[in-house]
């Protein structure tokens, strides 16, 4: 009996691993092609007859991205807005979600309806712009943070995680004399780390990639995040190659620069990611806390 079961589980492992490997290859081949292409010389890229090894390598695309040194400042803005944005967003949403996770909360129905409406209806670009103007957020760093404090979608996710927290633990805390805030901070939050990490990841990636906010509300280039800077570089490259007045070959194309920008902006995420990953891939277990 036992050996049979073991071989069954073995088979499962083997099949699972093989399938995962196939999937990984399907995902990786195009990605490696993107990376290789970003390092290809522009003519080799135009020929496009390679998957991993272009005829000629070149750093021109990366030179074009980094030629304007103000990009480093933009990196700084991006890091700052991502860090501050994520911390405030996660805390703010968790606070609201914790209260809303209590099904007996008075007025919960109204709050829910209000929240759901915000998920589907928005006044559009123009009134939002006017609002930002009235709030004095145009050309202010806080336009990256304040409007992003809250998202009902994230609240719903967190709310459902908070509901998984065993009520016995909270009851016990209450008996010990802990108030709502203490229960929230010492019981609910730590037990929902995977969810908090997920929301942090979602929001962090959004903050990192977002350039629309800057495009709409920023005219001060000193406050441009890196994605806006890169967007500008790509747009200008497109215009320049179409308005060529010299007799020199183009050393870069907008496609090459786009590929390079993807690599440049994704690398920091790959570096930061493992820090969050440990919280939801194999890390903490609810059982461990219980004991």
């Amino acid at each position: 009996m036992k050996t049979k079961k073991l071989t069954g589980d073995r088979m499962f492992d083997i099949v699972n691993t093989v399938l995962i490997l196939i999937i990984a290859i399907i995902i990786l081949v195009p990605l490696l092609n993107v990376v290789a292409s970003s390092f290809a010389e522009s003519r080799a890229l135009a020929e496009g007859n390679f998957i991993f090894f272009p005829e000629k390598w070149s750093l021109d695309n990366y030179r074009a991205v980094f030629k304007d040194t103000s990009i480093w400042k933009a990196f700084g803005i991006s890091v700052a807005k991502t860090l501050i944005g994520v911390v405030t967003h996660v805390f703010f949403c968790a606070m609201v979600a914790y209260a809303l996770s209590k099904r007996n909360l008075r007025g919960r129905k109204l709050y829910t309806v209000m929240g759901v409406i915000t998920m589907f209806f928005s006044g559009g670009m123009i009134p939002t712009y006017l609002l930002m103007k009235q709030l004095g957020l145009l050309n202010s760093f806080w336009v990256y943070i304040l409007p992003q404090l809250f998202s009902y979608y994230d609240v719903v996710i967190l709310m459902n995680f908070f509901r998984q927290v065993p009520s016995s633990l909270e009851e016990a805390a209450k008996i010990d004399g802990a108030g709502v805030w203490r229960t929230f901070l010492t019981i609910a939050m730590p037990l929902s780390k995977p969810a908090l990490a997920t929301i942090a990841l979602f929001n962090g990636v959004f903050q990192w990639n977002d350039f629309m906010t800057a495009k709409l509300y920023m005219t001060d280039k000193n406050l441009y995040p890196v994605q806006m800077k890169l967007y500008e570089i790509i747009v200008q490259q497109q215009a320049q190659s179409m308005n060529s007045i010299g007799n020199v070959a183009l050393s870069t194309t907008s496609k090459g620069i786009q590929l390079a920008t993807i690599v440049v902006t994704t690398v920091p995420i790959i570096i930061i990611y493992p820090l969050l990953q440990k919280h939801f891939v194999s890390g903490m277990m609810l059982g461990a806390v219980k004991e």
Partner: peptide, 28 residues
Amino acid sequence: QLPLQMMVLPGIIFMIIFCYMPIYGLSI
């Protein structure tokens, strides 16, 4: 439930300012 309600309140205020105030834009 006052402490809990106070936790929801900032969210409600946020929604009123950032989501409901511009919603008149739908009139177009």
